[in-house]
Amino acid sequence: MLEAILALSVLAGVFGVLLGFGAVRFRVDGDPVVDRIDAILPQTQCGQCNFPGCRPYAQAIAAGEADINQCPPGGEAGVQALADLLGVEPKPLNPDNGTEKAQPTVAWIDESVCIGCTKCIQACPVDAILGAPQQMHTVIRDECTGCDLCVEPCPVDCIYMRPVETDIRNWRWPFPENRIEAAR
């Protein structure tokens, strides 16, 4: 009886040590820097930075292959956040990649003009456009990141970028920054 308990304990102990050793020896490090950069990027997947999406751009920044000022949707605030994270000097957005929008926009399809060619669906990086060949398309407003990628391929120019209207669902209390300024 005692032998059995001992033998099993020894066996389990040896295996535990083996697995523990394996867990340390064969640890797979994800790159935490990439994750943190990716968390700052706006996830529009618009490709204006010349990378195929936000994560590839984050990887390129982490590898030192890309500059931090190539993300127009993130704007100056995004560049500032990246500079703080990486400990480098913030710099103005690179105009080659585009300009920051004054206001967030979403795509809107003029459905009476749409010919159902599906070209905008193929261009959309976040699958926010709904439709089928020869059927009218429409944009799922909540999914649209406002990246402008669908405007260019449309053969009948029926896609417009509209500012996001403030309604009861997306209105937020303004930050009390003015009062802080006034108190100084």
Partner: peptide, 19 residues
């Protein structure tokens, strides 16, 4: 005992292959 062995072999194999 064999269940223990199999579980460990599977776990260890997964770790090694992953790395």
């Amino acid at each position: 005992g064999f269940i223990l062995v199999i579980a460990v072999v599977v776990q260890f194999t997964e770790m090694v292959v992953h790395k």
